[in-house]
Design a protein around this nucleic acid. Sequence first.
DNA 1: AAGGCGGGGTC
DNA 2: GACCCAGCCTT
Length: 351
Amino acid sequence: MDRIQPGQEWPHKLLAWFDQNRRDLPWREGRPRNPYYVWVSEIMLQQTRTEAVKPYFESWKRRFPTIEALAEAKEADVLHAWQGLGYYSRARNLHKAAREIAEKYGGAIPEDKKDVRALPGIGEYTAGAILSMAYGKHEAAVDGNVLRVYARLYGIESDILKSAGRKEITTLVEKTLPARAGDFNEALMDLGSEVCVPKHPKCEKCPLHGECAALRLGLENVLPIRTPKKKQKESIVCCAVMIKEGKALFHLRPSKGMLSSMWELPMVLSDSEKDGVKMLEKLLGGKAGERIWTYTHVFTHRIWHMKAYLFHGAKEPEGDYRWYSCEEYREIPLAGPHAKLAAYIEPYLEE
DNA sequence: AAGGCGGGGTC
DNA sequence: GACCCAGCCTT
């Protein structure tokens, strides 16, 4: 009778495949692996594709070559290096953790699970990844790839985004984790991103195709099961382009919440453009001039319909506002779509 | 348990 | 358009 569940030996088959097919990635260079590189890359890779991370990782290495260098950097410079990568609390936490490692652990990432797990920005997955890949510990690292691969391999129909499904698979991973846990974890990632991909998995190329319950049952395009996401809330965002003596007025966003501690052109959120303009005029105590730019920016859970107006003779509001020239604002962290607006207004600053 | 938090590639 | 990615933190 045909077996539905995979055999005991599949982890070794996967490792053999990995030995022939491992991806060559910038953060995988050197043996033993540089724990700092493993850490930085794992944080950058959270909810972010490999191709998007590569250029950021390379410039990060030059800018902050060691944990000490990162610890000594200013937060604004750290955010600037992260600009465009998204989920900026990752950068903030990386920076905080670097300072903690420098102070408490003499500049070396601790090897104890409890200590690593306590660092800001390091959750269950990242702790497992660092400990297994950099320190050779016997730890699982369950991320989206692993959830998908196991859901298919074992024919698991639980929702992988809910804690029950996640727990079910984590237990299974811990049970199947072989020696060479670090390689095994990387092998699962490589399989997940090259072969066992979310849509239309390439089962004919899979070293485990003979073991896969989903394939056997014809469910390879059905599993994994995951709850659909909610749709975004839409807003109108009116922005003011105020220019004085070759400089534009910028505002520093608060240190909490979305795009925290990043700079933006003065803006207000509203449900209609008319209301937005009125609010902006009240904020700046002036009159909106020509509308020079519109753009729709889509976040994961929010949509901003942006409208930028020229403002003349208005006053600088109270709070965290500053005038910056082009050369200056290229060096500060700019919030999402405001980087695009800032680039667009450069010609206006020349006059 | 659910929601906030970015940006971009891909179909 | 919709989907989803090497998740974590707060509520």
